[in-house]
């Protein structure tokens, strides 16, 4: 990463303000980083081509381990949200793949958990479907 880009980011990131991690969030820190970067990209705060801070810079700014940020960047790269060029740092991809495999996997995991609980409570398949539909509508109303 060049000196220039570091300055650019330290101006608008201003330590901690850009991404906020929560200790009480049960998900691993790297997942939180991934999600928040995805969200920034999705709402257009980080347009395609925006340079991201270097792994070490972001780790220092968030006071988390380098390995956490490295893992988040690798994952974001794999699913196409960002691209990394050797020695040049990472930028937001031209067409970021927002239908992330990460989120898909997380959804699957929640679904499995829900199904397991449903079986434990002795709910029928149709009852489960009804409840999911209900939850879906509730969330949709909230977003509006």
């Amino acid at each position: 990463m060049t000196d220039e880009s570091v300055t650019v980011y330290s101006v608008y990131m201003n330590r901690h303000s850009w991404i906020s991690l929560s200790q009480s969030d049960p998900r691993a820190l790297y997942l939180q980083v991934i999600e928040q970067i995805q969200r920034r990209v999705a709402v257009g705060d980080l347009p395609p081509g925006t340079e991201l801070p270097s792994i070490r810079q972001l780790a220092a700014d968030l006071s988390v381990s380098v390995i956490t940020i490295k893992r988040a960047y690798l994952e974001l790269e794999r699913e196409g949200t960002i691209t990394t060029r050797q020695g040049k740092g990472s930028v937001v991809a031209d067409r970021p793949g927002l239908q992330s495999s990460m989120a898909q996997r997380e959804l699957d995991e929640h679904m499995n958990q829900a199904a397991r609980l449903g079986i434990l409570l002795g709910l029928s398949k149709s009852e489960m479907q009804r409840r999911i539909a209900e939850a879906y509508e509730k969330s949709q109303r909230k977003r509006k």
Binding site: R15, S54, R56, Q57, A59, A60, L62, S63, V64, V66
Partner: peptide, 9 residues
């Protein structure tokens, strides 16, 4: 902690 992480930049 935050100062320590600054050093490993």
């Amino acid at each position: 902690l935050s100062e320590l992480m600054q050093t490993v930049k």
